[in-house]
Simulated assay, not measured.
Amino acid sequence: MGRPQEPQKPFFPFGNPFRMISSKGSQLSPKLVALLNAFEETLAGRMTKLNPINKGDVLSLSWMKLAMDSISETYNDVKSLITKLELPACDWDDKWIDVYLDISVKMLDICIAFNSELSRLSQGHLFLKFALHNLDSTSSQQFAKACSLFDGWRKHINTKNPRLNNCWTILDSLVESLDLPKVKNSAKGKLLMRAMYGVKVEIVFVYSVIAAVFSDSAERLVDLNVAETHLWAQAFKDLQSNVNGEIRNASSSGRSVVLKELEAVDATVKRLYPMVQTGVASDHLKVLQNSVTELQTVTEKFSTGLDLVAKEVDGFFDAVLSGRDALLSTLRGDGGKVEPKLAGNLGQIVR
């Protein structure tokens, strides 16, 4: 681990988690240092992997899938670290429990909002599916139905999702909670708080980017400054600079901050719509057929991408929910099951 440096004044006034590790009375043993370094080096690798070679890829479902998978892996690493620390939940300080439970419920709330938006976008696929079905023939009646369905798709896609409104409020709350509670006389506890800081930073970043893309707005993107004492600090700095920078550049240049796959569908519909609306001459049928084929391709890619991201969001939701349930069950000492209000698949909760 490099020599601690005085961090620049952060955009948000977090504490310095490293200070907890080096405080008097609970120095880390070589074994704990090795565990911490392994966790932070793995986190650095994940952040490097999330940094797209092509900056434009961040506005894509493939990047969202990778990002959700990354925070799931980091979250599971924290759970694995708790096991390796041999720090049973019944020995946790009340403040640690409060932090864990508070973070988990906020993560669940945003997962529900994201899956709601993914479900809304998937529902729009039905308009295009039926429109394409009507384009199997060239009758004016079928063309009229296709135009009506295209109009319905545009109206549906441009409708705002009210469930996304609370995401930024929850994110602001998560940012405020990055200043973790002080831990006294427990080296393992301090290591745990430092690891939780890392996973929270990654989650806040990923959630912020996805919320910005879903909202088509860069105005409330979150910027975080992390102390250089973390082994993943530079990787995160590079990642945040590239991703947030690309989103802001797109917004400032007048481009929509929306998914590339959605833009591809929209552009194809715009090319196809005039032909369908006015009809085509026999010598232009090939152009129509090519446009229909292109719409089939981009629509299928969009639909498949939405399903894959929804699966990752659902998986993260389940991981957070199971971790929360395990902690509560241990604290109760009754082997209880998942809280009734949170039980069930995320997709079922959304629907």
Rank of each mutant, 00 (worst) to 15 (best):
M1Q: 12
P4V: 15
P7C: 09
Q8M: 08
P13H: 02
P13E: 03
I21G: 00
S22A: 13
G25V: 15
Q27H: 07
L32K: 06
V33F: 04
L35S: 06
L36T: 05
N37E: 10
A38Y: 10
F39T: 12
E40D: 11
L43S: 14
G56T: 06
D57H: 08
S60C: 06
L61F: 07
M68D: 01
S70Q: 06
E73G: 09
Y75L: 11
Y75E: 07
N76P: 11
D77V: 10
I82Q: 11
L85E: 02
L85D: 05
E86H: 14
L87S: 06
A89R: 06
C90M: 13
D91C: 09
D91T: 08
D91R: 10
D93F: 08
D93S: 12
D94A: 12
V99K: 07
Y100K: 10
D102K: 08
I110F: 02
F114E: 01
L118E: 00
S119V: 10
L121W: 02
L121R: 01
Q123L: 12
L126S: 04
L126F: 08
F127M: 04
L128M: 04
F130P: 02
N134E: 12
S139Y: 10
S140C: 09
Q142T: 14
A146R: 01
F150W: 01
R154Y: 10
K155S: 05
N161S: 13
T169E: 06
S173C: 07
L174K: 04
L174P: 00
S177G: 05
L178W: 01
D179A: 13
L180N: 01
L180K: 01
S186Y: 03
A187T: 08
A187K: 09
K188W: 04
M196N: 10
V206P: 01
V213F: 04
F214W: 02
S215T: 12
S217T: 08
L221N: 03
V222N: 00
V226G: 00
A227I: 08
T229W: 07
H230C: 02
N242F: 07
I247S: 00
S253W: 11
S256M: 09
K260I: 11
K260E: 07
E261A: 07
L262C: 15
V265M: 05
A267P: 03
V269N: 00
L272E: 01
Y273R: 12
Q277L: 15
D283S: 07
D283E: 11
H284N: 07
H284P: 03
V287K: 02
Q289M: 14
N290S: 11
S291C: 12
V292Y: 05
T293V: 14
E294G: 05
K301E: 03
K301S: 11
E312F: 07
V313W: 01
F316Q: 01
F316K: 00
V320H: 00
S322T: 08
D325M: 11
L327I: 15
T330S: 12
L331F: 09
K337D: 13
A343R: 12
I349H: 13
V350E: 00
